[in-house]
């Protein structure tokens, strides 16, 4: 079983990396880019894909709930 965990800075938390990348993209000629937010993707393989346990991992270590939100996507089937 495989899980993907997306970790993003909460709305309202200034993402300076995102701002710099947006500016750089505009300098490259991609003027349509209006906002960029940069997060993390964690992929893991598990013997047990119980979502509650993955949530627990996020709360206790993978994300910092003060400034980050997380989203868990579980992919079923033989990996």
């Amino acid at each position: 079983m495989r899980a993907r965990i997306f970790i993003r800075l909460k709305e309202g938390v200034l993402d300076v990396q995102g701002q710099v990348v947006q500016r750089a993209l505009r300098n490259l000629g991609f003027e349509e880019v209006e906002n960029v937010r940069i997060g993390k993707l964690i992929e893991m393989e598990l013997s047990n894909g119980e979502e509650g346990r993955i949530r627990d991992m996020c709360e206790r270590m993978l994300a910092n709930p003060v400034v980050e939100d997380y989203e868990i996507v579980i992919e079923d089937g033989e990996g």
Partner: peptide
């Protein structure tokens, strides 16, 4: 200490990176 919850808040990347 902030990660451990012994102090409140968080420390993020400096604004000038």
């Amino acid at each position: 200490l902030v990660e451990a919850g012994l102090l409140p808040g968080a420390l993020l990347k400096n604004t000038n990176l």
